[in-house]
Design a binder for these strands. Structure first.
Lengths: 149, 149
DNA sequence: TATAAAACCGAGTGCGTAGGTAGGAATTAA
DNA sequence: TTAATTCCTACCTACGCACTCGGTTTTATA
């Protein structure tokens, strides 16, 4: 039941953008360096975030990435589901695919998986990037050049 | 974030034992047949459940398995965590290992993972095998020879 | 006491996915 | 024109899941 690095790295990158991208685009290599993530690998992840409309890019010199929306309008759930797919614990309760199991009406375990899925979504959808930015600023009120996320 | 078949098969097997094991031991092959699980594979899973003290075995002819405790004293969480390990979404919030990350005090994402972990555990710990047996009996009030779990 | 039914055990296998690398093409500010 | 940067496709490797295989040991019963 672990999240892969996709979700974790992606969340780190998005938080990095929220903290550092106030005035303009941020180059991928600077994010990768600060967050200690392979640049080429992060490239693949941010491509997914871009296609999902969570970040926007600018090519060429001085290009980079920027959040597509305000941090308060991007939830942790948006980011994780974009990179990990559904957070459902079993396939039979993946969103919009619940009907696909022929035994759904008789299955006594399905309600368990639904509850687990919904409780996970509830947590991650209740936290916005802005919440994390606020936490970050509080923790690093003094040491402004630290980037542990 | 999917559960593996270990957890799902294990839960099915335990529910099968709760439903069918009222009067004595149940042979593994009958569980495997009813639940449509590879017998040899289920053997490996039930060995884990036995070592964890959730089921007891009797060897030899007419032997088999039986729940070690009353179904009302076995939760879905007990079964899933035994077979899957911690249900934590990331390693840094695996139970009793939270301290191992040197950045734990500064990490702004850790509280997210803690909330996710706790919400998952809360759901699965609130449901007992007896609850599932009751659901099962309700669904199959008429068709008593069906075994979809 | 022999037999068959069952649990117990350890090793091996195929496959998919995670987590990257490698190398280059296209774009654009300076 | 150059250098910085995104974008794209292909490839690679290790690992764990979901089994299979071939036995050994135990025990009720005929």
């Amino acid at each position: 039941m672990r999240l892969s690095t996709k979700g974790r790295y992606g969340l780190k990158a998005m938080l990095d953008l929220a903290v550092n991208g106030q005035n303009g685009h941020i180059a991928l290599n600077s994010i990768a360096e600060r967050q200690n993530i392979s640049e080429h690998y992060l490239e693949q992840l941010i491509a997914v975030l871009r296609k999902a409309g969570l970040v926007e890019s600018m090519r060429g010199a001085q290009g980079g990435y920027i959040l597509a929306r305000s941090p308060k309008d991007i939830t942790v759930g948006d980011i994780l589901r974009t990179l990990e797919g559904s957070l459902a614990p079993v396939d039979c309760v993946v969103e919009n695919k619940e009907h696909e199991c022929s035994q759904a009406d008789y299955c006594v375990t399905k309600p368990i998986w639904l509850k687990v899925r919904d409780s996970i979504n509830k947590v991650v959808d209740s936290i916005t990037l802005q919440d994390l930015v606020d936490d970050y600023k509080e923790v690093y009120a003094q040491a402004t050049d630290m980037y542990y996320i």
